[in-house]
Each structure stands twice: as structure tokens, then as C-alpha cells.
Design a protein around this nucleic acid. Structure first.
Lengths: 203, 203
DNA sequence: GACTATACGGAGTCTCGACTTCGGATATCA
DNA sequence: TGATATCCGAAGTCGAGACTCCGTATAGTC
């Protein structure tokens, strides 16, 4: 309900099926390409890997920014759905920490996602910001539930938790950080989020 | 002893004082410009703000990458010196946590620094990698000392600690994360680094 | 099978930014 | 002060990548 409903409403005829298939393939490829190379990857490469001409890409997405936005919206929506699904999980603590881990692992192969997690919140266009906020709210719900269950300390709030989520995701997105180190770093963060602790390192 | 010693050795005459002044000013401006806008900021803007022609920038630094590298080397060296100075501080725990906080705050106004903290380690040229490793080693020394003093748990190692340092620095570097949230996020990380805790959120 | 709106791809244009050229200025030294 | 090696800036070149034009192909409809 976020994308791909353009001509359906408004009177004009529906999109041709080949055009719809191309649009979908372009989105898939763009997610991979921008995921691997960041947003500096070229539109031409997306077209080539999708097996279409560059004009076709620009016909479906008027600017490169629009394409990137569409990719991000889809990704954010998917992550939000996964987060919301976890709200039904039996153990709130497991749900929260698992999703944290999942998002970081997911971002590890998607540079642009990690970057965008941050950027989309502030500026950006309405749709992308909305998708980003949707994800943020879902994380907030997981957090609150985990706190009520006593799995996360009560004195932390969404902004700093989300900041840590973004920070670890963005860093995991780049090469050079192997999986084991990432897991150990997350363990430290999770320990910091756990209840029953005193204040260290205060200046 | 890392930069600015070019013509001094080797027989040729020393650099003219106006040239040396320009070189220094270019480095200062470049640090600001790349700090604020990331490495995508243009060389021409550096030249303009430094009050010189663009050719002068390229005369001193043969490529944009070389300029960026010079900026980073200088910055890394400076941070390393600060870290090493803290090794004489009375309290090892305070030294470690203060430097962590300092580095994150420093990176908050220097996008390129945060990015480079990560990148320089892996590839990059010899000089930049060396400077980066120097900083990493200095952080390692602070960490070990803090652990011996019982201010940081014994079962964490430099890779994951450095990863967290990089992660929080990079994220702090972008807009939209206010100072208070940053401080609260760091508190969580520091709590995770503190000794005497059980394992939460394990899956 | 023919007709047509829709979609396609290749070959452009246009802008931007890294880097060079070269004639003119100036610090340095005698 | 005069000679000159060094340094400077304005105006280029060059390549890359975002975006457009237009003749051709094809899905959808009869």
C-alpha cells in the first residue's frame, strides 16, 4: 500500500504487465546495487543488471533520488512488518533483542539502508520519512513491551536506543567488520540495555 | 613528523614561506569543509574558502584523495597524541571513558573523520593506514589499562570496543542526533562495558 | 490479423567536478 | 635593486553520470 499503485486510480488505463514486471525487476536490482555500493552506484548499472535500457529506469522513476526513495520505502515497510510480527512473540525480551540483531545483520549487506535509516528521519520526502517513522514506531513498541517485561531497563528511551540501532547498523554495513566482532559488539550494547546495573564511567 | 616535511630533505631549496602558509591554510580549511560536508565536498570550495586558486590546492596535494588523506593523517595523529597523554592520568577508567566520549564528540562535527575511522583501517595508503593504526593502538592501551584497573570488564577485546567507538562516532557525525541523546546512548554502551554483569538477551 | 496506446532502448545533451596549462606575480638571494 | 627559481590564479580540458529524444517494438483490444 506504499508503492506500485500509480495508474490504478484516477481514470487512466492500468500499467501494461511487461512494464509492471520491469518496474519490479528494477526495484529488486536497485536494492542490490545500492545496497552493495551505496547511493553512489550509477543508475546505468542498475539498468544494465536489470536488463533494461536506462531510459526505462527513468521512465518508472523520474530521478535517481526517486528510485532510491522507492527502494528505501519498500525496505522500511518490510522491516516494520517484521517488527510488528514480533509483537506477538511469547517472550518480549527475545523479540526485542532478536529484532535488533536482525536489523543490524540485514543492514550489513545494505550500505544504503544503514545510511538512510539516519537520513530519512530528518529531511527527505513525505513518503520516505513516513516509512522511516513507521519502522521507528514499531521498534518503539518492541522496546516498551520489553521494558514492561523487565528485559530492558526502564530508564532508557527510544531516541538513544534507536541511535544505537542506527549506529551499529551503519557500521556493520561496511566491509572490514567480521561477523564475530559484530556479535561481540552487540553483546556489549545488550548488556548496557539490560536492567539492574550501576553507573560506570561517569565523569 | 608525519606531514609537511617534503622539500626540507633531499637537496632542493626549502619551500617558500608563502607556499608553506598556503599549504597550512588549505589543510585547515579542508578539515572544516570535509568535516562538515563529507568527502563529497568539492575541492573548489576548499580553494575558495582558503582564499587561493584551485591550482594551488592541486599543486600542494596532487589529488583530492591526497588532500583528504593529509587531513586525516593530521587528525589521527592529534587524536592519538591525546589518547597517549591520557595514559598518565591518575584514574584509568576515567581516562578510557573520557577519551571515548571525547572522540565521539570530536567526530560529531567531522563527518569525514567518522567515515575514515572505518575505511582507513582496511585499505588506503600506507601513511593513512599507519596513522589510523596508531590511534587504534593508543585506544588499545587505554582499554587494557582500564581493564587492569577493573573499570572495564575483562572479557571484551579491542576489536569490538573499537567497532563501537567507530559506530557511535560515525552516527554522531551526522545531523539530527542531539547532544543529550548522544550522551544517553554512550551511557548505555559504557554500562555494557562495565564489569559485574550477567548475559541478557541471549538467543 | 490489424490497430493503437503504451513501453522500450540507444544515442544523444548537459552539468559538475577533478585535474592541467600557462602567462604573470613575488619571495629570496646576491 | 636585479636575477630567477618558485609560486600563483584564471581559464581551460576531460570524463562520468544524470537525464532526454525519438524511432521502433509489442501488449491489449477488436
Amino acid at each position: 500500500m506504499s508503492t506500485s499503485d500509480r495508474r490504478q486510480t484516477g481514470g487512466g488505463r492500468a500499467r501494461r504487465v511487461d512494464a509492471e514486471a520491469n518496474r519490479s525487476r528494477i526495484l529488486d536490482v536497485a536494492e542490490q546495487v545500492f545496497g552493495a555500493g551505496g547511493e553512489s552506484a550509477s543508475t546505468e548499472e542498475v539498468a544494465r543488471l536489470a536488463g533494461v535500457g536506462i531510459a526505462t529506469v527513468f521512465r518508472h522513476f523520474p530521478t535517481k533520488a526517486a528510485l532510491l526513495r522507492a527502494v528505501l520505502v519498500r525496505r522500511f515497510d518490510r522491516l516494520r512488518e517484521q517488527a510488528e510480527a514480533l509483537l506477538d512473540t511469547a517472550d518480549p525480551g527475545t523479540a526485542f533483542f532478536d529484532f535488533f540483531r536482525h536489523l543490524v545483520a540485514d543492514a550489513a549487506t545494505k550500505i544504503a539502508i544503514g545510511e538512510a535509516l539516519l537520513d530519512a528521519g530528518g529531511d527527505s520526502d513525505g513518503e520516505a520519512a513516513e516509512a522511516s517513522n513507521g519502522l521507528r514506531r514499531a521498534v518503539g513498541a518492541l522496546l516498551r513491551r520489553a521494558q514492561q517485561a523487565g528485559a530492558v531497563r526502564d530508564d532508557v528511551e527510544l531516541p538513544e536506543v534507536y541511535a544505537l540501532l542506527v549506529a551499529t547498523s551503519r557500521t556493520a554495513a561496511h566491509a572490514g567488520l567480521d561477523e564475530e566482532v559484530r556479535a561481540r559488539a552487540l553483546t556489549i550494547v545488550f548488556d548496557g540495555l539490560a536492567p539492574h546495573r550501576h553507573q560506570p564511567g561517569a565523569g
